[in-house]
């Protein structure tokens, strides 16, 4: 059972990583224009004006 000492922090760390990623998407306003973004990603022309 000693392995728990490593496994629990690792699993929690991975979870926190996911939470951090979610926090980042929120901070960089990736939920402002879901409609537009889903079309933009498939455009052939290079997006020279990414959102700041």
């Amino acid at each position: 059972m000693d392995v728990l000492v490593y496994l629990i922090p690792v699993s929690l760390g991975l979870g926190l990583l996911g939470l951090g990623a979610f926090w980042w998407t929120l901070r960089s306003r990736q939920y402002d224009d879901p409609e537009g973004d889903k079309h933009r990603i498939l455009r052939t022309d290079y997006d020279e004006h990414p959102k700041e």
Partner: peptide, 9 residues
């Protein structure tokens, strides 16, 4: 200078 379209809104 700059244009940004928001399709959702």
């Amino acid at each position: 200078n700059d244009v940004r379209v928001n399709l959702t809104r």
